[in-house]
């Protein structure tokens, strides 16, 4: 079998993971949590040290806890909605997961250091929404390409980048900008996931037969 045929099978399996829209629904929820976090930053006065400390500590809790909670919720929803309808599949081998995690961690650290150094040099972080928008745009684009061209991910990719750049040129303060960015992207992601899930449930009714698998 030629490697392009195997790639097509890989794409189909990868697409299967996203066909229920649950990834966008839970991801959108995580974005909304980030929106609350940055919204809190925008509302708390600069002189309020306790509030600032609480929020800065909250970022770590939000990052770790939010990601873990999202994964947990996604697993529960997949087990409830997806696996009984279209079957269970576990995508990556442990080696691949480790590699993906390592690459993500390195990219995350490099991007954070880059953003802070650039911010120090320019004396402003007003461009942060553009960078974040571009990063999420790239992530959505990678998902679209890897899944063999699922159109809604191209839309989310373009939307994220345009939203980020649009907010860069607005005159709002940066934390409010980021709160707005995450709120809008979160809502759009939830709507996209919700519509996809509704279609998925309609097209894949729960099997009624309880007969044993041979």
């Amino acid at each position: 079998m030629q490697s392009d045929h195997i790639s097509r099978v890989e794409e189909r399996v990868y697409r299967h993971w996203y066909e229920d829209g649950l990834g966008e629904l839970t991801g959108g929820g995580l974005f909304l949590l980030f929106a609350f976090y940055f919204g809190g930053h925008a509302w708390i006065e600069k002189g309020n040290l306790m509030g600032r400390l609480f929020l800065n500590g909250g970022l770590i809790v939000l990052l770790i806890g939010g990601v873990l909670a999202t994964r947990w919720l996604l697993a529960i929803m997949k087990a409830h909605f997806t696996y009984p309808r279209t079957g269970y599949v576990e995508l990556n081998s442990p080696e691949r997961i480790s590699l993906n995690r390592a690459v993500t961690a390195v990219v995350g650290v490099v991007a954070t250091v880059f953003v802070f150094l650039l911010g120090q040099m320019l004396g402003s972080f007003s461009w942060a929404p553009a960078v974040v928008g571009l990063l999420f745009g790239i992530v959505y684009l990678l998902i679209a390409v890897k899944s063999g061209g699922v159109k809604r991910f191209y839309f989310l990719s373009a939307f994220s980048a345009l939203l980020g750049f649009g907010l860069w040129f607005s005159l709002l303060i940066v934390t409010f900008n980021l709160a707005l960015f995450y709120s809008v992207l979160g809502l759009v992601s939830i709507i996209s996931g919700g519509v996809t899930l509704a279609r998925f449930l309609k097209e894949n009714p729960m099997p009624t037969e309880l007969e044993d698998e041979p």
Binding site: H5, V13, Y83, T86, Y88, N92, P94
Partner: peptide, 24 residues
């Protein structure tokens, strides 16, 4: 085998849907 080579594991229902084979 090709499908299983691209995933860690899959259940019967998933394989049946992807291969379009009958249960038996």
């Amino acid at each position: 085998v090709t499908i299983l080579s691209t995933v860690e594991k899959a259940d019967f229902l998933f394989l049946q849907r992807e291969t379009k084979l009958t249960k038996g």
